[in-house]
């Protein structure tokens, strides 16, 4: 369903990705794991069609991701909305432009994630993260790309976010979640792709790993150290 072949991307002289390949079937929950600077964000942006690779290609359902922009939900690490905007205002924007946006689902997500009705600028980091997740998950799409949705936020928010992800997950949807802190997210992943210095250094099914007596967290330390 989603294929990346030989992806290369560099910024000026700094190589960000140096030949990334993978193939992700529909419905898989993938942890894209790596330290800061490993190329996770670049990779997600290429998959979202927000960047073009220097070499190689991404194919989503056989076509370039740009052709499927509206069907790929990309949640950037930084809050993308103006400080003065409220989640409800952004939701109105989405409901006018994205036929997949589900207003009822958005309201139930706001309640579950305990998002306050205030502008983004007046929210804590955790609240902003939860608000953005509500906006992202309220859009019905076959592919979700979440960039570091758990980074640097409080424990309670992380817990809620993980629960919301499980709750809203639909078996036909593919989800790629990038993180540099595996921790409590590891039980969510069907599969873990480890990225180091712009290359895939390991790509495994999480339960297979556990069968060998290892956890994703341990493997993270092992391959990325």
């Amino acid at each position: 369903m989603l294929e990346a072949s030989n992806l290369h991307k560099r910024y000026l002289k700094t190589p960000a990705l140096q030949g990334v390949d993978f193939s992700i079937p529909q419905g898989q929950v993938v942890g894209l794991l790596g330290l800061n600077g490993a190329g996770k964000t670049t990779l997600l942006k290429l998959v979202a069609g927000l960047l073009l690779p220097d070499r190689g290609a991404v194919r989503f359902q056989g076509e370039p991701p740009r052709k499927h922009r509206g069907r790929i939900v990309y949640l950037p690490e930084q809050n993308p909305w103006p400080e003065g905007a409220t989640p409800a205002q952004v939701a109105r924007l989405f409901s006018g432009t994205d036929p997949g946006f589900d207003g009822d689902r958005f309201h139930s997500l706001l309640a579950f994630l305990e998002v306050p009705a205030r502008p983004f600028g007046q929210m804590s980091k955790g609240q902003r993260a939860r608000a953005n997740l509500a906006l992202a998950l309220a859009r019905r799409a076959p592919l979700y790309l979440l960039d570091e949705p758990l980074a640097g936020i409080d424990l309670i928010s992380r817990d809620r976010i993980l629960k919301a992800l499980v709750r809203e997950w639909r078996e036909e949807a593919t989800l790629i979640l990038s993180t540099h802190e595996v921790g409590e997210a590891e039980a969510l992943f069907d599969r873990a792709i480890f990225l180091k210095e712009g290359r895939v250094v390991k790509d495994v099914l999480a339960e297979e790993l556990r069968k060998e007596g290892k956890s994703v967290v341990e493997t993270f330390k092992e391959v990325l150290a």
């Binding site: 499980v166 039980a187 339960e207």
Partner: peptide
């Protein structure tokens, strides 16, 4: 399966 997955914070597939 969904309720249990949510409670345990594990993949519903599992």
């Amino acid at each position: 399966a969904r309720t249990l997955a949510e409670e345990l914070k594990v993949n519903p597939n599992t």
